[in-house]
Design a protein around this nucleic acid. Structure first.
Lengths: 154, 154
DNA sequence: TTATAAAACTTTAAGCTTGAAATAATTGCC
DNA sequence: GGCAATTATTTCAAGCTTAAAGTTTTATAA
């Protein structure tokens, strides 16, 4: 997947694009993961969950998190379990539907996330340093458009 | 990481770009992973290793694979172990340096990979269908340039 | 030589990930 | 009401992933 096209012909340029895309995101992801570990002793999945919850002070269902983060249900269960045991996140039982519980950041979790997010934004700015803000906007637009076509088909 | 920026201000556009990039690659990756499983009963990491080896008929060292695929040494050990046990890959002892062994595709592995790679290229073409080949080339160029800056710093 | 360092791998522990199966609660239908 | 289907979530097994520690082999150099 990270290797180059094995053939030439139609579709070759899209394959090259995909490989570039993947290598770029893996490289940046690896760097961010390492810094999260070193500087804040946390992980990318935990950061992802906390970022989602930070945007939803009212809380999110497990299935909301799963859908939003593009990962499986069982996956979210494990990450939230660990965050709960660290006191960063809480599951609140709901009156209406007893199958579900609202997941929220605790006060500590919220405070902790704010600090990490600030550093994270700085890192991304640094790692994408030679993309101008203008170019960043254009690239973002292109990525947005090519996704909308086939995404969410089922 | 997959969530949006939590603030506005400088660096915001780069953060948005990063989030788009990550969501795009995760979405495509998930789709490809699922198809590899369903159609060929294999995984993305196995495919990655085989793709790298397919490009190097003379074989690769474990550390070559690790560097090329942007994953850790121990990780490659496990994946190659499984590929060997499936008869798709072979470790060849070397005369010169007994710490290392050349890893190669077997005849079966090579045949198997060729079939999978053909399907894979088709899938990528489909998933990136509404990126024109021309646009794909431009995007690829932009991704290439923004990577070269900070990559391989250490 | 012969220690000592360096290099190439493997092993290990902890955590992430998925898809499938299992549980529990709710909804819809008769 | 009662039973089937659906929904929300957790559990499980297998595999992926990393960083760190351990093993074996090779290179360096006093």
């Amino acid at each position: 997947m990270v290797a180059g096209p094995t053939s030439t012909g139609p579709g070759k340029d899209r394959l090259r694009l995909w490989i570039r895309l993947l290598r770029a995101s893996r490289t940046i992801e690896a760097e961010l993961r390492e810094r999260l570990k070193k500087e804040f002793d946390t992980t990318l999945p935990r950061f992802d969950v906390m970022a989602a919850l930070y945007r939803s002070p009212e809380g999110m269902l497990m299935s909301d998190l799963s859908r939003f983060l593009l990962v499986s249900n069982g996956n979210v269960t494990g990450i939230v379990d660990r965050l709960v045991s660290e006191g960063l996140v809480a599951r609140a039982r709901r009156n209406g539907d007893r199958r579900t519980s609202m997941v929220r950041l605790t006060a500590e979790g919220s405070k902790s996330f704010a600090a990490i997010a600030a550093a994270h934004e700085g890192w991304v700015g640094e790692l994408l340093g030679n993309v101008s803000e203008d170019e960043a906007r254009r690239l973002t637009g292109m990525l947005k458009s090519f996704r909308s076509n086939w995404e969410g088909r089922e």
